[in-house]
């Protein structure tokens, strides 16, 4: 198998800016096919920005993002929509449309991309809702659901078209440990049963050790680690160890520097 087939996503030299500030400083990563890859890192390291580039929401200043061997950074909107058909995304807040019921939300991508009659659409919707454990909630509105249920409904919508690639933005953010573990189980199930390529952006260590096959760690816009889980555990990189051992960042000033800092010089 060639490298392009082994890796679902191949990012080379990705450089991005937010205004004048450089967020990603020329990173290169590969996401293996059919595995769960976790993009790990502290707040503000650029991991959400990276995700937004992978799903084509933002355009890079420089660099290539090849999905199945085709560079999405160079595509126009219409081509990109073709690629997006094979992607599912679960956003941090689930991003369900509040004006529609759960069933209508899940049916949204199906109705948009496939010409099916109404009863077939509803069968597909019920199948997906059953898969995430939300049967019977078809006619609820998102505002009537709990945080964990919203995420499940968002997941049902993300997998509505049986995507090859599934992206998660902070799946366990704001959930209690039990609900978060339930979501991790679902992620494992999707990889094992459907063979999806899954990319998870998170900073929650427990869930990393449950779901990850492959880990990419970012710090201040640069890749400081990429490899399998065991390599992560044995990594000797100082920043990686700090993250894994939950050590706080200690910055020591010299008295002179501190003085300069507080007088704002």
């Amino acid at each position: 198998m060639s490298a392009a087939m082994e890796n679902a996503i191949e990012v080379t030299g990705l450089r991005t800016h937010y205004g004048q500030r450089e967020i990603l400083k020329g990173i290169s990563i590969s996401i293996p096919r059919g595995k769960t890859s976790v993009i790990l890192g502290g707040s503000g390291c650029g991991k959400s920005t990276l995700l937004k580039h992978l799903i084509g929401l933002l355009r890079p200043t420089e660099g290539k993002i090849a999905i199945n061997g085709r560079d999405i950074a160079a595509m126009d909107e219409e081509e990109l929509n073709g690629v997006r058909r094979k992607m599912g995304v679960l956003f941090q807040g689930a991003a369900l449309l509040n004006s529609l019921t759960v069933a209508e939300n899940v049916a949204l991508p199906i109705r948009e991309h496939a010409r099916l009659n109404e009863s077939t659409v509803m069968i597909m919707v019920r199948m997906k809702l059953d898969l995430v454990g939300l049967s019977g909630f078809e006619n609820f509105y998102p505002s009537q659901l709990s945080g964990g249920m919203k995420k499940r409904a968002g997941l049902a919508r993300a997998i509505a078209l049986d995507p090859e690639l599934l992206f998660f933005d902070e799946p366990s953010a704001g959930l209690d440990p039990v609900t978060a573990a339930g979501l991790d189980d679902l992620i494992l199930k999707l990889r094992n049963v459907f063979g999806m390529t899954i990319v998870v952006v998170t900073h929650e260590l427990p869930s990393v050790f449950t779901i990850a096959d492959y880990v990419i760690m970012l710090d201040a816009g640069e890749v400081i680690f990429s490899g399998i889980l065991d390599d992560l555990r044995n990594s000797q990189n100082e920043r990686v160890r700090m993250f894994l051992e939950r050590r706080p960042e200690t910055r020591t000033y010299s008295p002179d520097d501190y003085f300069r800092f507080i007088v704002g010089d």
């Binding site: 929401l57 997006r84 992607m87 995304v89 948009e112 991309h113 919508r157």
Partner: peptide, 8 residues
């Protein structure tokens, strides 16, 4: 953003 990623 969710609409965009669904191709809508």
């Amino acid at each position: 953003d969710a609409l965009v990623t669904m191709g809508i």
